[in-house]
Simulated scan of single mutants.
Amino acid sequence: MPLPDFQALMLPLLQLLADQQVHRTRAVIEALAAHFQLTPEERRQLLPSGKQFTFDNRVGWARTHLKKAGLLDNSQRGFLRITPAGQGVLRQQPPVINSKYLEQFAGWREFRGLSDQNAVTPAIADLTQTPNTPEEDLDAVYQQLRSDLRSDLLQTIKSCSPAFFERLVVELLVAMGYGGSRREAGQAIGRNNDEGIDGIIKEDRLGLDIIYIQAKRWDAVVGRPEIQKFAGALQGQRARKGIFITTSAFSKEAADYVRKIESKIILIDGQTLAEYMIDNNVGVTVEATYELKRIDRDYFIED
């Protein structure tokens, strides 16, 4: 089953606090997970950023909305407690608590930027209807922008010459930490008799091992025969490690083959190549940086 959105968590969260006792936030999160019968896999689901559990994030935003409405208190860090207003809401036995329901509370309207209950701007109205938390919406936009950039990057790479693509591959591997500098780390193999190898790179700055590179600026899927040829070239060089990079994709047979052979060959398809380039700032430039901040509650602890 899909994870409950943050609005679906509001009423169960308030009901868990109905005993008027102080509850640890972590215990409440686990109780809600049990209430919705979440599987371990669902509990481990992360936001697209990969830095927070999705369910924990949604519980956090349900808590924030209820707090802004004055229905619960979490002024003590890491703890939650229902307020008298929250008790009054539970006595009314509402079938659901969501953004529409919370519009009756002045504190929540102020939090959402509403001057009065009927003056809802289009932008705010959209925000109150979304099932996502702000972090999820922000991550979704970020992932879409990244996807567009990845697509544009691949198209640009495919328009470059094969020689430029081979240099790009070595530049990327250096940026990822292999070999040290571009001058000392990578070198091209002879064009006329490369035996299926386009370049080599040191595995580390000391050159304790050498990695052989095959780079294919292709549109067609790379199949097993090409990988077998590369594996044979590695054996001819008495090499143990290789990286095969393409702007297209690998067939299932090619992927299965590299898992069975003794040599260690890493396959990097076009989508992964673009991801690595973005992450290591190769062929891209930073246009803007946004920082997402939160209150440092430790700062406000008085001795």
Results as ranks from 00 to 15, higher is better:
192 N>M: 10
224 R>S: 03
184 E>G: 06
158 K>Q: 14
60 G>D: 00
287 E>M: 15
19 D>F: 03
166 E>K: 04
36 F>N: 07
96 V>D: 12
111 F>K: 08
273 L>H: 13
226 E>L: 02
293 K>A: 06
208 L>S: 15
117 Q>V: 13
198 D>K: 10
244 F>S: 01
86 G>R: 07
82 I>W: 00
258 V>E: 09
261 I>T: 11
254 A>H: 11
143 Q>H: 06
51 K>P: 01
28 V>G: 05
84 P>Y: 02
207 G>T: 10
261 I>E: 05
29 I>K: 08
143 Q>W: 07
164 F>A: 11
209 D>I: 04
180 G>C: 03
232 G>Y: 05
124 I>S: 07
35 H>K: 05
123 A>S: 13
97 I>E: 05
257 Y>D: 01
75 S>C: 02
246 T>Q: 05
171 E>Y: 14
243 I>M: 02
199 G>D: 09
64 T>R: 10
224 R>D: 09
49 S>Q: 05
15 Q>N: 08
60 G>H: 00
153 L>Q: 13
28 V>D: 12
166 E>G: 02
112 R>G: 11
139 D>A: 10
287 E>T: 15
41 E>W: 02
143 Q>L: 02
132 N>C: 09
135 E>Q: 12
127 L>N: 15
158 K>H: 06
78 G>D: 10
142 Y>I: 13
